[in-house]
């Protein structure tokens, strides 16, 4: 027997447009990711010697430019946002019991928060020319 609650008496009242917003975000981030991931893969894998040219110097070189900083930040946020929202629906669909659902969503939220924090920290505090590193590993502009 599977009981059904009266829709008017649900325990958690979700704000009217939360699900609509989340649905729109899913589509917007999805479309954004196609561009961002496509650009990312094109630059990293298809230019120069492909994946073999990706090294510390390559990454540092990119992040020296604010354009790539913003690009990668957007990639980070859109990817995690899209993925987390997807995970949320998976939890909603497959985890049984309100408390278990809430727990899993909290765990996921914390993980996402940590990843966002770490990711943006790296993008904005990255030092392209760490002191004492061998010069052949560093970008050309390190003096």
């Amino acid at each position: 027997m599977i009981p059904r609650r009266d829709p008017a008496k649900r325990a958690v009242v979700v704000p009217q447009r939360a699900e609509l917003t989340s649905w729109v975000i899913m589509r917007v981030t999805g479309a954004l990711l196609i561009v961002l991931v496509g650009g990312h893969l094109a630059i990293n894998l298809m230019t120069g010697h492909g994946v073999h040219s990706v090294d510390f110097a390559f990454v540092s070189g990119k992040w020296a430019s604010p354009f790539w900083q913003v690009w990668d930040l957007l990639l980070l946020l859109a990817g995690l946002g899209h993925g987390a929202n997807g995970m949320r629906t998976v939890i909603n669909d497959y985890v049984r019991g309100d408390r278990a659902r809430l727990t899993w969503k909290l765990v996921m939220g914390v993980v996402v928060a940590i990843l966002v924090a770490l990711g943006s920290l790296v993008i904005f505090t990255h030092d392209p020319c760490p002191h004492g590193a061998p010069a052949d590993l560093l970008p050309s502009f390190c003096g």
């Binding site: 009242v13 009217q16 699900e19 609509l20 909603n92």
Partner: peptide
């Protein structure tokens, strides 16, 4: 739309 808006409404359609 209000009745179809919350977590059990149309947005839940997969």
């Amino acid at each position: 739309f209000a009745a179809l808006s919350d977590g059990e409404g149309v947005w839940r359609c997969r």
